[in-house]
């Protein structure tokens, strides 16, 4: 039990089929508390299905899953108390303002002083100026930030991010990455799914590759790199990538008050390419 408690997420033998289609064929993995775990896979690999089972939206056909020590099948209410889900499409209420969205979630989490919680989060996610505007007027990056801000209300120990940067422009993507890193610094466990290899590389402490319903590898980036023969030394003329060019030209001031992409994150970006 104590060993299990040390893990924020513990998944064993998870299976799920939609009629004939076997989506998960026995998925096992563990996520340590306070770490970022990336579930990598192509479209249709079953990433979203795993997230939905872990967030109690779907029932598994077989296997067990524990989140924050609670079984997702038998202690669903406790699981929901411990998690936040940020789904594939920014789940914000478009007709409400940014602030009203946050207040709504704070009320539904039965917290006292929802107004203050909302204002604090608007500030933290640089949305204070946009707080009184309808979410439907937000840009893709702002919606995602609002979406993630809504997920942080009540400080759930485990957060699921299902393809958090799909459909975002490069700057918004870096903003989201920055947020995710901050979360992990504060001790939140993050499970994120992505189909972008560089996203997993940037963020994750551990990476698992989900392929045809099974985890085919699971390890740190270094461990995964060791699976292939050691790098050959080649001399390559280093050209800036289009992303580097784009970000340099557009600069960080494209959006008012967005958390500035730090020079270091831009540099590490470049170095790892």
């Amino acid at each position: 039990m104590t060993a299990q408690q040390a893990q924020a997420i513990h998944v064993q033998g998870l299976k799920k089929s939609y009629k004939e289609l076997q989506v998960l064929r026995g998925v096992d993995f563990e996520v340590a508390r306070g770490s970022i775990f990336a579930l990598l896979g192509s479209n249709g690999a079953g990433k979203t299905t795993v997230v939905k089972i872990l967030s109690t939206l779907l029932k598994a056909d077989a296997g067990t899953a524990r989140v924050n020590g609670f079984d997702v099948a038998t202690q669903a209410a406790d699981v929901r108390e411990s998690i936040s889900l940020t789904g594939q499409f920014a789940a914000v209420d478009e007709i409400l303002t940014g602030r009203e969205n946050l207040v709504l979630v704070a009320r539904l989490r039965h917290l006292s002083n929802p107004g203050k919680i909302a204002d604090d989060l608007l500030k933290r996610f640089s949305l204070t100026d946009a707080g009184a505007r309808k979410a439907s007027t937000y840009s893709g990056g702002m919606r995602r930030r609002l979406d993630i801000a809504m997920s942080l209300i009540g400080n759930p120990p485990v957060i699921f991010l299902d393809e958090p940067t799909t459909g975002l422009d490069p700057q918004a993507r870096i903003e989201v990455w920055q947020t995710v890193k901050e979360l992990a610094h504060r001790g939140t466990t993050v499970l994120l799914t992505t189909q972008y290899l560089d996203e997993a590389e940037q963020l994750a402490d551990r990476i698992a590759i989900l392929h045809e319903g099974r985890i085919i590898v699971n390890g740190t980036l270094t461990e995964l790199k060791q699976l292939l023969p050691p790098a050959k030394v080649e001399y390559v003329e280093k050209q800036p990538t289009l992303e580097d060019v784009f970000l340099t030209l557009v600069g960080d001031d494209g959006k008012n008050g967005t958390p500035a992409m730090t020079a270091t994150s831009a540099r590490t970006n470049r170095e790892q390419r």
Partner: peptide, 13 residues
């Protein structure tokens, strides 16, 4: 369709 339904369902309500 918008996903807010799933957000509500994954919350302790």
């Amino acid at each position: 369709k918008s996903g807010i339904f799933e957000r509500f369902q994954s919350m302790p309500i």
